[in-house]
Amino acid sequence: MPDAKKWANSEDGSFKRQVSSFRETISASHPVFKPGKGRYWLYVSLACPWAHRTLITRVLKGLTSVIGVSVVHWHMDEKGWRFLPAGDGSKDKCFEPSAGIACTPESQSTAGVTSESTRAGVDGTPDHNYGFARLSDLYYKAKPDYQARFTVPILWDLETETIVNNESSEIIRILNSGVFDEFADPQTNPLDLVPLKLESQIEEINSWVYDHINNGVYKSGFAESQEVYEREVTGVFEHLDRLEHILSVNYKAAVTKYGEKDAASRLYLINEQLTEADLRLYPTIVRFDPVYVQHFKCNLSTIRAGYKMIDLWLRNMYWNHSAFRSTTSFDHIKLHYTRSHPRINPLAITPLGPKPDILPL
Protein backbone atom coordinates (compact mmCIF):
# COMPACT_ATOMS: atom_id res chain seq x y z
CA MET A 1 0.00 0.00 0.00
CA PRO A 2 2.09 2.94 -1.24
CA ASP A 3 1.81 6.64 -0.62
CA ALA A 4 -1.47 8.19 -1.72
CA LYS A 5 0.16 10.32 -4.44
CA LYS A 6 1.01 7.16 -6.35
CA TRP A 7 -2.61 6.00 -6.20
CA ALA A 8 -4.96 8.96 -6.60
CA ASN A 9 -3.94 9.82 -10.14
CA SER A 10 -7.19 10.84 -11.83
CA GLU A 11 -7.88 14.41 -12.80
CA ASP A 12 -10.64 14.86 -10.21
CA GLY A 13 -8.45 13.56 -7.38
CA SER A 14 -10.17 10.19 -6.99
CA PHE A 15 -8.36 6.98 -6.14
CA LYS A 16 -7.78 4.37 -8.86
CA ARG A 17 -6.55 0.89 -7.93
CA GLN A 18 -3.97 -0.87 -10.05
CA VAL A 19 -5.03 -4.01 -11.92
CA SER A 20 -3.02 -7.09 -10.90
CA SER A 21 -0.48 -8.38 -13.44
CA PHE A 22 -0.15 -12.11 -12.71
CA ARG A 23 -3.37 -14.04 -13.18
CA GLU A 24 -2.55 -17.75 -13.55
CA THR A 25 -4.28 -20.57 -11.68
CA ILE A 26 -3.31 -23.98 -10.26
CA SER A 27 -4.98 -27.19 -11.38
CA ALA A 28 -4.19 -30.80 -12.24
CA SER A 29 -4.79 -29.98 -15.90
CA HIS A 30 -2.66 -26.83 -15.98
CA PRO A 31 0.41 -27.28 -18.22
CA VAL A 32 2.73 -25.67 -15.63
CA PHE A 33 1.12 -24.95 -12.26
CA LYS A 34 -0.02 -28.28 -10.85
CA PRO A 35 -0.98 -28.98 -7.21
CA GLY A 36 1.77 -30.09 -4.85
CA LYS A 37 2.67 -29.98 -1.18
CA GLY A 38 5.47 -27.54 -0.43
CA ARG A 39 5.60 -26.22 -3.99
CA TYR A 40 3.79 -22.92 -3.42
CA TRP A 41 4.45 -20.02 -1.06
CA LEU A 42 2.51 -16.95 0.08
CA TYR A 43 4.17 -13.58 0.52
CA VAL A 44 1.95 -11.33 2.62
CA SER A 45 1.63 -8.30 4.84
CA LEU A 46 -0.29 -8.64 8.10
CA ALA A 47 -1.37 -5.03 7.68
CA CYS A 48 -2.85 -5.41 4.20
CA PRO A 49 -6.54 -6.41 4.07
CA TRP A 50 -6.12 -8.01 0.63
CA ALA A 51 -3.29 -10.25 1.85
CA HIS A 52 -5.22 -10.96 5.07
CA ARG A 53 -7.99 -12.74 3.19
CA THR A 54 -5.47 -15.21 1.72
CA LEU A 55 -4.03 -15.99 5.17
CA ILE A 56 -7.50 -16.69 6.57
CA THR A 57 -8.31 -19.00 3.64
CA ARG A 58 -5.00 -20.85 4.07
CA VAL A 59 -5.93 -21.67 7.67
CA LEU A 60 -9.59 -22.47 6.99
CA LYS A 61 -8.61 -24.93 4.26
CA GLY A 62 -6.04 -26.73 6.44
CA LEU A 63 -3.12 -25.66 4.24
CA THR A 64 -0.68 -24.30 6.82
CA SER A 65 1.64 -27.30 6.31
CA VAL A 66 1.10 -27.25 2.52
CA ILE A 67 1.78 -23.62 1.59
CA GLY A 68 4.51 -21.69 3.40
CA VAL A 69 4.35 -18.00 4.20
CA SER A 70 6.72 -15.06 4.59
CA VAL A 71 5.64 -11.76 6.13
CA VAL A 72 6.96 -8.35 5.08
CA HIS A 73 7.81 -5.64 7.59
CA TRP A 74 4.81 -3.50 8.54
CA HIS A 75 6.49 -0.30 7.30
CA MET A 76 6.30 0.57 3.63
CA ASP A 77 8.81 3.17 2.47
CA GLU A 78 9.38 4.84 -0.89
CA LYS A 79 10.79 1.56 -2.27
CA GLY A 80 7.81 -0.52 -1.15
CA TRP A 81 7.63 -3.57 1.10
CA ARG A 82 10.77 -5.09 2.65
CA PHE A 83 11.72 -8.21 4.59
CA LEU A 84 13.70 -8.54 7.79
CA PRO A 85 17.40 -9.22 7.18
CA ALA A 86 18.10 -12.79 6.16
CA GLY A 87 18.61 -15.01 9.20
CA ASP A 88 16.47 -12.89 11.55
CA GLY A 89 13.46 -14.73 12.90
CA SER A 90 13.40 -17.54 10.36
CA LYS A 91 12.90 -20.06 13.16
CA ASP A 92 10.67 -17.92 15.32
CA LYS A 93 7.58 -19.95 16.22
CA CYS A 94 5.31 -16.93 15.74
CA PHE A 95 6.01 -16.93 12.02
CA GLU A 96 6.94 -20.55 11.39
CA PRO A 97 6.54 -20.77 7.58
CA SER A 98 5.14 -24.30 7.63
CA ALA A 99 2.58 -23.52 10.31
CA GLY A 100 -0.13 -20.99 11.00
CA ILE A 101 0.51 -17.35 11.73
CA ALA A 102 0.34 -16.82 15.50
CA CYS A 103 0.17 -13.09 16.00
CA THR A 104 1.92 -11.81 19.10
CA PRO A 105 0.09 -10.03 21.94
CA GLU A 106 -0.63 -6.44 21.02
CA SER A 107 1.46 -3.63 22.44
CA GLN A 108 0.03 -1.25 24.99
CA SER A 109 2.29 1.43 23.51
CA THR A 110 4.26 1.76 20.29
CA ALA A 111 6.57 4.43 21.70
CA GLY A 112 10.14 3.55 20.79
CA VAL A 113 9.08 1.35 17.88
CA THR A 114 10.53 2.83 14.70
CA SER A 115 10.24 2.04 11.02
CA GLU A 116 13.70 0.48 11.27
CA SER A 117 12.73 -1.98 14.04
CA THR A 118 13.72 -5.56 13.22
CA ARG A 119 12.18 -7.52 16.07
CA ALA A 120 12.36 -11.13 14.91
CA GLY A 121 8.92 -12.66 14.65
CA VAL A 122 7.27 -9.39 15.62
CA ASP A 123 7.95 -6.88 12.83
CA GLY A 124 7.96 -9.53 10.10
CA THR A 125 10.15 -12.32 8.72
CA PRO A 126 12.99 -12.69 6.26
CA ASP A 127 12.31 -14.00 2.79
CA HIS A 128 12.66 -17.66 3.68
CA ASN A 129 13.37 -18.81 0.14
CA TYR A 130 15.89 -16.43 -1.41
CA GLY A 131 16.93 -14.06 1.37
CA PHE A 132 15.74 -11.10 -0.71
CA ALA A 133 15.68 -7.71 0.98
CA ARG A 134 12.66 -6.40 -0.92
CA LEU A 135 9.38 -7.72 -2.26
CA SER A 136 10.33 -6.00 -5.51
CA ASP A 137 13.17 -8.53 -5.90
CA LEU A 138 10.55 -11.28 -6.31
CA TYR A 139 8.74 -9.30 -8.98
CA TYR A 140 11.97 -8.74 -10.90
CA LYS A 141 12.90 -12.41 -10.55
CA ALA A 142 9.55 -13.34 -12.08
CA LYS A 143 9.60 -10.59 -14.70
CA PRO A 144 12.87 -8.64 -15.13
CA ASP A 145 11.14 -5.81 -17.04
CA TYR A 146 8.27 -5.45 -14.51
CA GLN A 147 7.19 -1.80 -14.20
CA ALA A 148 4.04 -1.74 -12.05
CA ARG A 149 3.66 -1.58 -8.23
CA PHE A 150 4.99 -4.30 -5.93
CA THR A 151 1.87 -5.53 -4.16
CA VAL A 152 0.95 -8.25 -1.69
CA PRO A 153 -0.25 -10.94 -1.64
CA ILE A 154 1.92 -13.02 -3.96
CA LEU A 155 1.29 -16.70 -4.62
CA TRP A 156 4.73 -17.95 -5.64
CA ASP A 157 5.79 -21.20 -7.34
CA LEU A 158 9.07 -22.50 -5.91
CA GLU A 159 9.49 -24.99 -8.76
CA THR A 160 9.43 -22.55 -11.67
CA GLU A 161 10.49 -19.63 -9.45
CA THR A 162 7.82 -17.23 -10.61
CA ILE A 163 4.59 -15.56 -9.51
CA VAL A 164 1.46 -17.59 -10.14
CA ASN A 165 -0.98 -14.90 -9.09
CA ASN A 166 -1.01 -11.57 -7.24
CA GLU A 167 -4.76 -10.92 -7.25
CA SER A 168 -6.14 -11.75 -3.81
CA SER A 169 -9.67 -12.58 -4.93
CA GLU A 170 -8.29 -15.16 -7.35
CA ILE A 171 -5.79 -16.57 -4.86
CA ILE A 172 -8.53 -17.34 -2.34
CA ARG A 173 -10.54 -19.05 -5.09
CA ILE A 174 -7.47 -21.16 -5.97
CA LEU A 175 -7.02 -22.17 -2.34
CA ASN A 176 -10.73 -22.92 -2.00
CA SER A 177 -11.00 -24.86 -5.28
CA GLY A 178 -10.05 -28.21 -3.76
CA VAL A 179 -6.78 -28.65 -5.68
CA PHE A 180 -4.87 -28.95 -2.40
CA ASP A 181 -7.44 -30.98 -0.45
CA GLU A 182 -5.44 -34.23 -0.74
CA PHE A 183 -2.55 -32.55 1.12
CA ALA A 184 -4.63 -30.69 3.70
CA ASP A 185 -4.39 -31.25 7.43
CA PRO A 186 -6.60 -34.30 8.19
CA GLN A 187 -7.62 -32.65 11.47
CA THR A 188 -9.24 -29.85 9.49
CA ASN A 189 -12.64 -30.23 7.91
CA PRO A 190 -12.03 -28.12 4.79
CA LEU A 191 -14.87 -25.69 4.33
CA ASP A 192 -16.20 -24.86 0.88
CA LEU A 193 -16.34 -21.08 1.00
CA VAL A 194 -18.25 -20.80 -2.29
CA PRO A 195 -20.84 -23.61 -2.39
CA LEU A 196 -22.50 -23.78 -5.77
CA LYS A 197 -26.00 -23.17 -4.43
CA LEU A 198 -24.89 -19.92 -2.80
CA GLU A 199 -22.48 -18.69 -5.47
CA SER A 200 -24.79 -16.11 -7.01
CA GLN A 201 -25.61 -14.60 -3.60
CA ILE A 202 -21.93 -14.52 -2.66
CA GLU A 203 -20.99 -12.83 -5.92
CA GLU A 204 -23.73 -10.23 -5.54
CA ILE A 205 -22.64 -9.27 -2.00
CA ASN A 206 -18.95 -9.33 -2.97
CA SER A 207 -19.52 -6.88 -5.80
CA TRP A 208 -20.92 -4.01 -3.75
CA VAL A 209 -18.92 -4.77 -0.62
CA TYR A 210 -15.71 -4.54 -2.65
CA ASP A 211 -16.57 -1.32 -4.45
CA HIS A 212 -18.16 0.60 -1.59
CA ILE A 213 -16.59 -0.85 1.58
CA ASN A 214 -13.34 -2.78 0.92
CA ASN A 215 -12.17 -0.24 -1.64
CA GLY A 216 -14.49 2.51 -0.45
CA VAL A 217 -12.40 3.26 2.64
CA TYR A 218 -9.36 3.74 0.39
CA LYS A 219 -11.28 5.96 -1.99
CA SER A 220 -12.25 8.07 1.02
CA GLY A 221 -8.81 8.16 2.61
CA PHE A 222 -6.84 8.87 -0.55
CA ALA A 223 -9.30 11.40 -2.02
CA GLU A 224 -7.56 14.60 -3.08
CA SER A 225 -10.55 16.90 -3.02
CA GLN A 226 -13.31 17.61 -0.51
CA GLU A 227 -15.99 16.80 -3.07
CA VAL A 228 -14.55 13.38 -3.88
CA TYR A 229 -13.98 12.57 -0.19
CA GLU A 230 -17.55 13.45 0.81
CA ARG A 231 -18.99 11.40 -2.03
CA GLU A 232 -16.91 8.34 -1.19
CA VAL A 233 -17.27 8.41 2.59
CA THR A 234 -21.04 8.83 2.23
CA GLY A 235 -21.06 5.74 0.03
CA VAL A 236 -19.13 3.76 2.63
CA PHE A 237 -21.70 4.44 5.33
CA GLU A 238 -24.70 3.94 3.06
CA HIS A 239 -23.42 0.44 2.39
CA LEU A 240 -22.59 -0.20 6.03
CA ASP A 241 -26.26 0.58 6.64
CA ARG A 242 -27.11 -2.03 4.02
CA LEU A 243 -24.93 -4.59 5.79
CA GLU A 244 -26.49 -3.74 9.12
CA HIS A 245 -29.95 -4.44 7.70
CA ILE A 246 -28.90 -7.82 6.27
CA LEU A 247 -27.32 -8.89 9.54
CA SER A 248 -30.29 -7.63 11.57
CA VAL A 249 -32.66 -9.82 9.54
CA ASN A 250 -30.30 -12.79 9.88
CA TYR A 251 -29.90 -12.27 13.62
CA LYS A 252 -33.63 -12.12 14.26
CA ALA A 253 -34.06 -15.36 12.31
CA ALA A 254 -31.26 -16.99 14.33
CA VAL A 255 -32.82 -15.87 17.62
CA THR A 256 -36.14 -17.39 16.60
CA LYS A 257 -34.49 -20.64 15.56
CA TYR A 258 -31.76 -21.10 18.18
CA GLY A 259 -32.50 -18.65 20.99
CA GLU A 260 -30.65 -15.48 21.91
CA LYS A 261 -27.79 -17.31 23.66
CA ASP A 262 -26.70 -19.12 20.49
CA ALA A 263 -27.78 -16.61 17.84
CA ALA A 264 -24.50 -14.65 17.72
CA SER A 265 -22.49 -17.76 16.82
CA ARG A 266 -24.86 -18.30 13.86
CA LEU A 267 -24.55 -14.74 12.56
CA TYR A 268 -23.21 -14.68 8.99
CA LEU A 269 -24.07 -12.84 5.80
CA ILE A 270 -25.70 -15.81 4.09
CA ASN A 271 -27.64 -18.86 5.35
CA GLU A 272 -26.16 -19.14 8.85
CA GLN A 273 -22.86 -20.38 7.42
CA LEU A 274 -19.40 -18.98 6.89
CA THR A 275 -18.78 -18.15 3.23
CA GLU A 276 -16.38 -16.16 1.10
CA ALA A 277 -18.65 -13.14 1.55
CA ASP A 278 -17.82 -13.07 5.28
CA LEU A 279 -14.14 -13.69 4.61
CA ARG A 280 -13.86 -10.79 2.14
CA LEU A 281 -15.70 -8.38 4.42
CA TYR A 282 -13.84 -9.18 7.64
CA PRO A 283 -10.41 -7.62 6.89
CA THR A 284 -12.03 -4.23 6.29
CA ILE A 285 -14.36 -4.28 9.29
CA VAL A 286 -11.68 -5.43 11.74
CA ARG A 287 -9.52 -2.47 10.61
CA PHE A 288 -12.36 0.05 10.63
CA ASP A 289 -12.33 1.36 14.20
CA PRO A 290 -8.55 0.99 14.77
CA VAL A 291 -7.45 2.84 11.61
CA TYR A 292 -10.06 3.77 9.01
CA VAL A 293 -12.09 5.99 11.34
CA GLN A 294 -9.21 8.36 12.01
CA HIS A 295 -6.62 7.66 9.30
CA PHE A 296 -9.00 7.55 6.31
CA LYS A 297 -11.48 10.03 7.85
CA CYS A 298 -14.29 7.44 7.85
CA ASN A 299 -15.57 9.01 11.05
CA LEU A 300 -19.31 9.42 10.58
CA SER A 301 -19.49 6.62 13.15
CA THR A 302 -17.45 3.76 14.56
CA ILE A 303 -18.60 0.20 14.03
CA ARG A 304 -18.90 -0.52 17.75
CA ALA A 305 -20.97 2.59 18.45
CA GLY A 306 -23.11 2.84 15.34
CA TYR A 307 -23.57 -0.67 13.95
CA LYS A 308 -24.67 -3.13 16.61
CA MET A 309 -25.18 -6.08 14.27
CA ILE A 310 -21.98 -5.58 12.26
CA ASP A 311 -20.06 -5.36 15.52
CA LEU A 312 -21.68 -8.57 16.80
CA TRP A 313 -20.87 -10.28 13.49
CA LEU A 314 -17.26 -9.06 13.75
CA ARG A 315 -16.88 -10.40 17.27
CA ASN A 316 -18.34 -13.74 16.18
CA MET A 317 -15.79 -13.99 13.38
CA TYR A 318 -12.85 -13.00 15.58
CA TRP A 319 -13.57 -14.88 18.79
CA ASN A 320 -15.30 -17.99 17.42
CA HIS A 321 -12.95 -18.70 14.50
CA SER A 322 -9.24 -19.05 15.21
CA ALA A 323 -8.43 -18.61 11.50
CA PHE A 324 -9.58 -15.01 11.79
CA ARG A 325 -8.17 -14.24 15.23
CA SER A 326 -4.72 -15.81 14.69
CA THR A 327 -4.11 -13.92 11.45
CA THR A 328 -5.15 -10.50 12.80
CA SER A 329 -2.31 -8.30 14.08
CA PHE A 330 -3.52 -4.95 15.35
CA ASP A 331 0.07 -3.84 15.85
CA HIS A 332 0.93 -4.36 12.18
CA ILE A 333 -2.35 -2.76 11.13
CA LYS A 334 -1.94 0.40 13.23
CA LEU A 335 1.79 0.83 12.65
CA HIS A 336 1.60 0.33 8.91
CA TYR A 337 -1.17 2.76 8.11
CA THR A 338 -0.06 5.53 10.44
CA ARG A 339 3.64 5.36 9.55
CA SER A 340 3.63 4.48 5.86
CA HIS A 341 1.45 7.31 4.50
CA PRO A 342 3.35 10.55 5.22
CA ARG A 343 1.02 12.63 3.09
CA ILE A 344 -1.89 11.62 5.33
CA ASN A 345 -0.04 11.47 8.66
CA PRO A 346 3.21 13.47 8.25
CA LEU A 347 4.29 13.16 11.91
CA ALA A 348 3.81 9.37 11.91
CA ILE A 349 2.11 9.39 15.31
CA THR A 350 0.17 6.19 15.99
CA PRO A 351 -3.03 6.67 18.05
CA LEU A 352 -3.34 4.42 21.09
CA GLY A 353 -7.05 3.77 20.72
CA PRO A 354 -9.54 2.39 20.46
CA LYS A 355 -9.21 0.19 23.51
CA PRO A 356 -9.79 -2.65 23.34
CA ASP A 357 -8.96 -3.22 19.68
CA ILE A 358 -12.03 -5.44 19.48
CA LEU A 359 -14.74 -5.91 22.10
CA PRO A 360 -15.13 -9.23 23.93
CA LEU A 361 -17.74 -11.62 22.63
Score class of each variant (00 low, 15 high):
residue 11 E to D: 10
residue 13 G to E: 07
residue 23 R to D: 02
residue 38 G to L: 03
residue 40 Y to L: 13
residue 51 A to Q: 09
residue 51 A to M: 10
residue 57 T to I: 06
residue 60 L to N: 09
residue 61 K to I: 04
residue 68 G to A: 05
residue 78 E to Y: 13
residue 80 G to L: 11
residue 89 G to F: 04
residue 90 S to G: 06
residue 91 K to N: 14
residue 95 F to G: 00
residue 96 E to D: 15
residue 112 G to Q: 03
residue 131 G to K: 02
residue 140 Y to P: 03
residue 143 K to E: 06
residue 144 P to E: 14
residue 145 D to L: 14
residue 146 Y to T: 07
residue 153 P to D: 02
residue 161 E to N: 13
residue 162 T to Y: 02
residue 166 N to M: 05
residue 168 S to F: 01
residue 176 N to A: 06
residue 177 S to T: 01
residue 178 G to W: 03
residue 183 F to N: 02
residue 195 P to L: 10
residue 202 I to W: 08
residue 204 E to Q: 13
residue 206 N to V: 01
residue 220 S to V: 12
residue 220 S to M: 09
residue 221 G to R: 05
residue 224 E to M: 05
residue 225 S to W: 09
residue 232 E to M: 12
residue 235 G to S: 14
residue 239 H to M: 03
residue 247 L to Q: 13
residue 254 A to W: 14
residue 259 G to Y: 08
residue 265 S to K: 13
residue 268 Y to L: 01
residue 269 L to A: 11
residue 276 E to R: 09
residue 278 D to P: 12
residue 281 L to S: 07
residue 285 I to W: 02
residue 286 V to M: 03
residue 292 Y to D: 04
residue 296 F to P: 03
residue 298 C to M: 07
residue 303 I to E: 04
residue 310 I to Y: 03
residue 313 W to F: 10
residue 313 W to C: 10
residue 318 Y to N: 12
residue 319 W to F: 12
residue 319 W to S: 04
residue 322 S to P: 08
residue 323 A to N: 03
residue 358 I to M: 05
